[in-house]
Design a protein around this nucleic acid. Sequence first.
DNA 1: TGATTTACCAAACAAGTGTTTGTTTGATAA
DNA 2: TTATCAAACAAACACTTGTTTGGTAAATCA
Lengths: 177, 177
Amino acid sequence: MSRETLMAVSARLFARGGFDATSMRDIAGEAGMLAGSMYYHFSSKNDLIAAVYEEGVAEISAAVDAAVAAADTPWTRLEAACVAHLQSLLSDTAHAAVMTADLRRLDARLRRRLIAMRDAYERRFIDLVTALPLGTGTDRTLWRLQLLGALNWTPTWYRPGGKSPAAIARALVAALR
Amino acid sequence: MSRETLMAVSARLFARGGFDATSMRDIAGEAGMLAGSMYYHFSSKNDLIAAVYEEGVAEISAAVDAAVAAADTPWTRLEAACVAHLQSLLSDTAHAAVMTADLRRLDARLRRRLIAMRDAYERRFIDLVTALPLGTGTDRTLWRLQLLGALNWTPTWYRPGGKSPAAIARALVAALR
DNA sequence: TGATTTACCAAACAAGTGTTTGTTTGATAA
DNA sequence: TTATCAAACAAACACTTGTTTGGTAAATCA
């Protein structure tokens, strides 16, 4: 069982139940080993969390950057970013699904580290929103928080079978246009 | 220490850290008693959670109903509802703040019960959105989920000092108009 | 007055947590 | 064959969790 496989299992369980509620024994059981054996690959649970989260941020960043690069107007760039963002969040094979997990219970050092990663990622959206031709009275910070909030909330109600993640993301952007 | 005071303390701690991360000892300590003593007032932690959540739903329902009754056009009614909704969610004295807590880790029976309460509350927004004159192509279900998602996500970034919860709610509605 | 109820404490319980330790296994290379 | 290494197991560690039990002062009621 490789380190990468362990991280993939962890990402799925973390995304489903949060960090605190997912025990090392849960992960190990799913991966076919005992809890203690994981400490050969990761020096602590916090270490595992950080590794998974970092991989998630890297994944979603790459997906969004590629999508943005392929579009050529401010609105289509934002739309492409949102589609890539939501597809990553709702995929259950992607590590990025952990990014909607609750960070409050993590110890302060780790939490700050993860928040810094997330902020660095979300900075992309500041730029994308800045480039939009919005009404002069618009609070662009709030507008961006509204868009990301609606996107990040979708994992709580999304169920496969209806509109695709891409269609949802496009509709959310369109409604704010 | 009354049952009501205990519920108020619980609501604050549940809203800050979630149900799982808030222990009976945390609550008891804040209330000035020992963990075991709480079992005089509540037969189990799940019982306490259900009581707090129910009170929260009742509170926010009353606040929204009163706000809606005082407005007289579809858009102002929706706006009033969102203002009341967000004020309840962001108040740290209201029990309603627990409504954004994560329900996934609760046992199935309790989770279903809380979800049923929340659904009954949110049904108000189905009616409010139905009454709006939206473009014919608009998916009203998704439109409502977008609005509620943006509202329910605010507790993750809101900090007192900037725009008021009421102003935020009005801006979120305005951006979707 | 005496009996009962209210509201709590003190201490324990079993189960589950992350983590550490010593040991074993199978493969690989000298 | 010998030596080394990666990767795991088995069992314990100290600690936290929700919960239970038995007791006890103060208030209330008969």
